[in-house]
Design a protein around this nucleic acid. Structure first.
Lengths: 195, 195
DNA sequence: TGTGACATGTAATATGTTACATGATTGA
DNA sequence: TCAATCATGTAACATATTACATGTCACA
């Protein structure tokens, strides 16, 4: 009945032959964009509306060095203009690892309830005076609408030009934000009634 | 139009007077459960269907020591049976910090598109042969149904006994899993058509 | 008397963040 | 020529994970 728990991808003694989420993601970028520089990979995160990864240089450059050390990408010298640079191409081995990371099978935690900092806070909202609770929900709903709008524009953009899987990703973001907005509205009504 | 980006809570030179998500959460637990031991706080994560935090001892014990050092909780000696133990009670200062963490105002990243490892993978599904893509979606949908069922049971449980905010949290998990399931079904239909 | 669950920690480790340093390119 | 942006890194750091060590309790 209960879906159960399993070790999640993270630091400290990570099993050999696995990838962190960020590593899998960067490897996927190297696959989908073809040979690309570290900065191009960073750009994906820097431009992404999802705040989960910052795309910080301190994450991406060492990560690509790590993937190179494991033989999952290969660096090619590449001179853009006068400046030396390196392009990372996925290797056949990297390709196999990417497929394994994509699954199936997938570790169980992947399917668990995704983290949502708003939901986390909702559980402790009783610690706020009623007036601030109302403000909390109003602010959350306002921002949720803005983000939903942005995600819908993004989806419209991918419909003309992006590939099918980009569309599905954008669609996933939209439905998740729609669900959150609906949930917030429900919470506001619920709390309004029980005031 | 675009919601923009902002520094997220994380390690390295975190601004004074802020809390990580896990710290805020544990502080909230100390508030909602009243004075409680570290193990009670761990239990919340260990028993939670959300895989985001493991509730590992190595996270929670040092975290509570940190909160104590900042004067946000106070440890009371407490002998359960013969064994010495410590109960952590939230202080007035901790209470104020909790309220600040809860917001409003909240940092912008809180409202961003939540992380979803399934959505991340969807973007690279083109790297799999069509047959494995189908398996991926089938497995994902199957697990999604199981988790949704569990979340609905959880929600039913909070309706009889839990407080209002616990209900809202459970409800949030349900709508998020419903949205994900609907999205996965849509993706399966979409990929089936374009085969 | 021993086995397993409960409970409290510590140690070692990999990760990703902020902040910084540096050089190239663009354009006002 | 100066500033801003693009681009490639490195350094210091806090965090949370796994794995381990240890002790207590119930109960068979």
């Amino acid at each position: 009945m209960s879906p159960g728990r399993e070790a999640k991808s993270g630091p400290a003694a990570r099993p050999r032959g696995t990838l962190t989420e960020l590593e899998g993601c960067v490897l996927g970028i190297a696959w989908s964009r073809g040979p690309c520089t570290a900065y191009v990979a960073r750009k994906v995160f820097l431009d992404s509306p999802s705040p989960y990864w910052s795309g910080s240089a301190g994450a991406v450059y060492p990560l690509l060095a790590r993937l190179e050390g494991r033989g999952l990408v290969r660096a090619q010298a590449h001179s853009a203009g006068r400046r030396a640079s390196r392009r990372f191409a996925i290797t056949p081995r990297g390709r196999r690892m990417l497929e394994r990371w994509l699954g199936p099978p997938l570790p169980a935690w992947i399917f668990g309830i995704p983290m949502d900092p708003l939901r986390t806070r909702m559980g402790f909202l009783g610690a706020l005076p009623a007036r601030r609770r109302t403000l909390f929900l109003a602010e959350a709903e306002r921002h949720a609408r803005v983000h939903l709008e942005a995600a819908r524009n993004e989806l419209a953009g991918t419909r003309t030009g992006g590939d099918l899987f980009d569309q599905l990703v954008s669609r996933g973001a939209v439905v998740s934000l729609e669900a959150r907005l609906a949930w917030l509205s429900g919470a506001r009504r619920r709390l309004g009634r029980s005031r």
